[in-house]
């Protein structure tokens, strides 16, 4: 096991590379889901917080 962890002396490079990849992958999975949930919630409540965050659409006058 410790031989596996030492990565033939390259542990200081291999594990940070894999660790960082894991962090970026997990963030890519979690953040969009959270954003979707928050948008749904905001739209439900009706306070359009995202109006300022992302640009408001030009409203169509019927």
């Amino acid at each position: 096991m410790s031989e596996f962890l030492s990565m033939g002396g390259y542990a200081a490079f291999v594990w940070p590379a894999y660790g960082l990849t894991l962090i970026v992958l997990v963030a890519n999975v979690l953040l969009p889901r959270r954003r979707h949930r928050r948008i749904l919630k905001q739209l439900r409540v009706g306070t359009d917080e995202f109006q300022s965050v992302s640009q408001p659409t030009v409203r169509h006058v019927p």
């Binding site: 890519n28 954003r35 749904l40 359009d48 992302s54 659409t57």
Partner: peptide, 20 residues
């Protein structure tokens, strides 16, 4: 995974753009 994340991002983006 890219397709998955793209779709998840798009769900939020579409809601936002279509909120009216």
């Amino acid at each position: 995974l890219f397709v998955y994340v793209l779709f998840e991002r798009l769900k939020g983006e579409v809601l936002l753009r279509e909120r009216q």
